[in-house]
Amino acid sequence: EGEAHRVLFGFVPETKEELQVMPGNIVFVLKKGNDNWATVMFNGQKGLVPCNYLEPVELR
């Protein structure tokens, strides 16, 4: 579910809505907001990550 994206930079959450991710993680974007935040799914957890920390990736 969602579009696959690769994480470019590590992100440490500052609020409980945000999700910690590391460079190279593959996350699935469920929704992109107008505020430059994306709702993503990673390892069964859902949370917010900055859009500019993500790049689309083709999964084969």
Score class of each variant (00 low, 15 high):
Y53Q: 00
E17V: 08
G10T: 14
F11G: 02
W37L: 12
F9E: 14
G47V: 07
L19T: 01
K46N: 07
E55Q: 10
L54C: 00
V29Q: 01
V57A: 09
K16N: 13
L8Y: 00
E1M: 12
E14C: 10
K31R: 11
N34L: 13
V29P: 07
L19H: 00
F11A: 07
V27H: 00
R6C: 05
V12P: 04
P56L: 03
T39N: 08
N25H: 10
G2H: 06
G24E: 02
D35M: 03
K32Y: 07
T39F: 07
G44D: 10
N34E: 14
Q20Y: 09
K16I: 10
G33A: 13
A38L: 02
E3N: 09
P50D: 04
Y53V: 12
K31D: 10
M41A: 14
E55C: 05
E14Q: 14
H5C: 04
G10P: 14
E17W: 08
C51R: 13
F11K: 03
E58I: 12
E14D: 10
V49G: 02
P23W: 02
K46C: 13
L19A: 06
P50Q: 00
P56I: 01
E1D: 08
K31F: 05
L48I: 15
G24M: 01
P23E: 09
V27Q: 03
N34R: 14
R6G: 01
L30S: 06
N34W: 08
E14K: 15
P13N: 02
V57G: 03
Q45W: 08
T15P: 05
H5M: 06
G44H: 03
G24S: 00
P13S: 07
V27D: 03
G24R: 02
L54S: 03
V21Q: 00
V12T: 15
V40C: 14
W37Y: 10
E1G: 10
P23I: 03
R6Y: 08
L54K: 01
F11P: 00
R60A: 14
R60V: 14
N34S: 15
K32G: 05
H5Q: 05
Q20I: 04
P13A: 09
N36W: 02
G10Y: 09
E58H: 10
E3R: 10
I26K: 07
N34K: 14
N34Y: 07
N52D: 14
R6M: 08
V57W: 04
R60Q: 15
I26D: 02
N34M: 15
N43G: 10
C51L: 11
N36G: 15
W37M: 15
A38R: 02
V40H: 01
C51F: 11
M41N: 11
D35P: 06
V12A: 11
G47D: 03
E17G: 13
R6T: 07
R60W: 12
L8S: 07
E1F: 09
G2T: 05
I26Q: 07
E14M: 10
P56W: 01
D35C: 04
V12N: 14
F9K: 15
K16S: 13
K32T: 06
N36Q: 10
P13R: 04
G2I: 03
E1N: 10
R6A: 04
Q20A: 14
Q45M: 12
E1S: 10
Q45S: 12
A38Y: 07
H5W: 02
N52F: 05
D35T: 07
N34T: 15
V40Y: 00
F9D: 15
E3A: 10
P50M: 00
L19M: 11
K31Y: 10
T39I: 04
M22F: 11
E55R: 08
V49C: 04
F28D: 13
E55G: 05
G47L: 07
K16C: 09
E14T: 14
P23Q: 08
V27K: 00
F28N: 15
N36Y: 04
L59S: 14
F9P: 14
V29F: 00
L54F: 01
G24D: 06
V27W: 00
V49E: 00
K32N: 03
T39V: 09
K31T: 10
K46A: 08
V49Y: 04
T15H: 12
K31V: 08
F42H: 14
E14F: 08
V49R: 01
T39W: 09
P13M: 05
F9V: 14
M41F: 13
L30M: 12
N43P: 02
E55K: 09
G2E: 07
E1C: 09
T15V: 07
P13D: 02
Q45P: 00
R60H: 15
K46L: 10
E14G: 11
L30Y: 03
P13G: 10
T15R: 14
D35K: 07
F9R: 14
P50N: 02
L54M: 06
R60K: 15
N25F: 01
Q45R: 15
L48V: 06
N52R: 13
V40L: 01
G44F: 00
V40T: 02
T15G: 11
V40D: 05
L8W: 00
V29Y: 01
K46Q: 11
T15I: 07
P23F: 03
F9G: 10
A4T: 07
K31P: 05
V49H: 00
E58T: 13
V57I: 11
Q45G: 08
V21K: 00
L30N: 04
N43I: 00
K31M: 09
E1I: 12
G44A: 03
Y53M: 08
G33P: 08
V12R: 13
P23D: 00
V21L: 11
V12L: 11
K16F: 08
V21I: 09
M41L: 13
K31G: 11
V27F: 02
N36T: 07
D35W: 01
R6L: 08
N36H: 09
N36F: 05
M41K: 12
C51W: 15
P50T: 02
M41E: 15
W37D: 06
T15C: 08
K16W: 07
A4V: 07
H5L: 02
D35E: 07
N52S: 13
V27N: 00
N52Q: 13
M41G: 05
E58D: 13
P23S: 04
P56E: 04
N43T: 04
V7F: 01
I26E: 07
G47M: 06
G24K: 02
F42S: 11
V12Q: 14
Q20K: 14
P56H: 03
